[in-house]
């Protein structure tokens, strides 16, 4: 607890400086943090304490956004890991697929949004498709890498003791590749947040955090815009730290094994 206090003391100082600076400048474009906080509360956080102060509006905005984000991310993770492990375990297949992967990940995902709009029409499917396309690459590339470089002694041990194909996959290859795969999953989670916002800003979304951002812009609601941006920052921080927590627990063997060697 002491460590957290010690680490985070600059936060209130910076907020206070920002508040003083913004009040002194008195610009419409740069509202003070107190005004932003008040607007945020009004927008989303006036609900009952039992619901973490989330208002109905907050549920209406956050849930669809998060559902699309996690949905797209989950699809990309499943597809990326399955494809990546298959490609990583076969050097022939990898030769055929590598250039396609290199090129596919170089295409900026937002450039495909107009295409997805034509292909899928339905808003949600377009948004999920954008997220899937944008976030699958880190998972795929890391899974290929992780599965490709499984220690040969591990696979030979599995062969000598006659493990079946399924056992080799679930007991040896996936755990051995897990540290790499997790790194890809974490990177793609932060990309999923970005693409969630992009797809909501680009499409004609009718709900969601990106939609609220556009709505605030149209109404010249600057505290609302600053608030939404801050909210996205907090959301990104939360996503990353909770994923790190899961990663640390799942891969504790990896961290501790490396410390002892």
């Amino acid at each position: 607890m002491n460590g957290v206090v010690h680490r985070l003391w600059p936060v209130p100082v910076l907020v206070a400086l920002w508040e003083a600076g913004a009040r002194a400048a008195a610009s419409t474009y740069f509202p003070p943090p107190s005004a932003i906080a008040a607007r945020l509360r009004e927008l989303w956080f006036s609900g009952p304490p039992s619901r973490l102060f989330l208002s109905d509006q907050a549920l209406q905005d956050f849930l669809p956004s998060l559902a699309r984000m996690f949905g797209g991310w989950a699809i990309a993770c499943a597809a990326g890991i399955a494809l990546g492990v298959a490609v990583g375990r076969s050097s022939a297949l990898a030769g055929y697929v590598d250039p396609i992967v290199e090129f596919g990940r170089a295409i900026p995902p937002p450039t495909l949004i107009p295409l997805f709009v034509v292909l899928f029409k339905v808003d949600v499917r377009m948004q999920v498709a954008t997220i899937v396309y944008g976030v699958i690459w880190p998972v795929l590339v890391n899974s290929i890498d992780g599965a490709r470089y499984v220690d040969r002694q591990h696979t030979e041990t599995a062969q000598v003791f006659g493990l079946s194909r399924a056992q080799r996959l679930t007991r040896i290859i996936l755990p051995a590749a897990a540290p790499k795969i997790f790194a890809g999953l974490r990177l793609s989670l932060s990309l999923a947040l970005i693409l969630m916002v992009v797809s909501e800003l680009a499409g004609s979304a009718t709900s969601g955090i990106g939609y609220e951002l556009l709505y605030a812009q149209q109404n010249f609601d600057l505290p609302g815009m600053w608030g939404t941006i801050a909210l996205l920052g907090v959301l990104g921080l939360l996503l990353n730290s909770s994923f790190l927590l899961v990663e640390r627990r799942t891969l504790s063997w990896h961290r501790r094994a490396r410390q002892t060697n």
């Binding site: 002694q153 007991r171 897990a178």
Partner: peptide, 18 residues
Amino acid sequence: DDLAVVFQDYSRSLFPWM
């Protein structure tokens, strides 16, 4: 079928995640 191997490099033949 009925064969087992003990490798020299124990740190790589045992699985660290188990």
